[in-house]
Design a protein around this nucleic acid. Structure first.
Lengths: 168, 168
DNA sequence: TCATAATCTGTAGGCACCTACATATATGTC
DNA sequence: GACATATATGTAGGTGCCTACAGATTATGA
């Protein structure tokens, strides 16, 4: 049984439980979305891992960047970038050159194959972008709402808010 | 380097890229949220896995339910419920009884230890709920926006929308 | 100048899901 | 009543992140 097969769906309890289930709801949505994106790549017969997108896109827009720079831009850990880098290198899509000023750093850049893949994917990325804008309009500014949520969390984390409540 | 340590943060590119990065944004947010929830359990010295919440909560509200029923209510796969069930049983928090009408089904119910844990966690769950409502107000109805996004995706999936765009 | 601290990247292992496939039981049809 | 099909659950293995820790290099200051 999958979550999307039944006839009349039972009540969606995760909608009622804003608190402890908010994370679960967001995860569910993110899985639905990049599951669909994955299917789109497959439909075009392109071998592609979702996690490649951020790095590939940044490198194609900005030229070489270090692991740390990519992590900061994409708001993920350097560890995740490092793993993606390894995967991209293994796939022959990106390469590493030593930074002449600092031997700790690795400058990542696209290989010709990487550039080729990016070009081939542009139409799909544009379709995804268009579909996302359409969804955003249809759902009346979800992304703006997400921005506000991120900002609110940056002001005071959920953890802090919960602790404050437990103390009183 | 972590994503939340630097001084002035560089531009957050994931906000610009609605399309291919929407899934990533949602995932990032969900990780922030249930990371914080995990820290809250740890602060109270409670051994707790995030994934237990949905099942535990449903069982405490509704009494025994089967794996499939839980999956439908929580909008996750039966596989995920099955794994959570195993984990809950191992932790002594839930138990399985055979369904007299259908030997394929497993009815899950809370053990006394499970009920005890739920009681002890109620205050925390309420604090989480309160914090989520506060966040929702501060971010001006994010959850309503998420509802609308889910509904829009249910009407026509991202996959379908992307394919339609690629065909024209 | 040289020990100490800070910074950059990497490895190991974990988490909460997922898909693909397998097994056991139930149902419908001839 | 036997057999194909549908349903309920489970196992194996994968995904894209994460934290904790470790190694290498650079910057700082006594």
């Amino acid at each position: 049984m999958t979550p999307s097969d039944g006839e009349p769906l039972p009540e969606d309890y995760s909608r009622r439980l804003g608190g402890a289930a908010l994370g679960a709801r967001l995860r569910r949505l993110s899985e639905a979305i990049d599951g669909d994106a994955t299917r789109a790549y497959a439909a075009l017969d392109v071998t592609f891992e979702q996690r490649w997108f951020g790095v590939l896109n940044q490198l194609s827009l900005n030229g070489p960047l270090t692991v740390g720079e990519l992590a900061a831009r994409l708001r993920i850990t350097h560890v995740s970038v490092s793993q993606t880098r390894a995967s991209l290198e293994k796939a022959g899509l990106a390469q590493t050159t030593a930074d002449p000023d600092d031997a700790r750093r690795r400058r990542l850049s696209l290989t010709p194959a990487g550039q080729g893949l990016v070009s081939r994917l542009r139409p799909l990325w544009q379709a995804l972008e268009g579909a996302a804008l359409e969804l955003d309009a249809e759902a009346q500014a979800v992304t703006a709402a997400l921005d506000r949520l991120e900002d609110a969390l940056a002001r005071r984390s959920l953890y802090q808010r919960v602790l404050d409540r437990l103390e009183t």
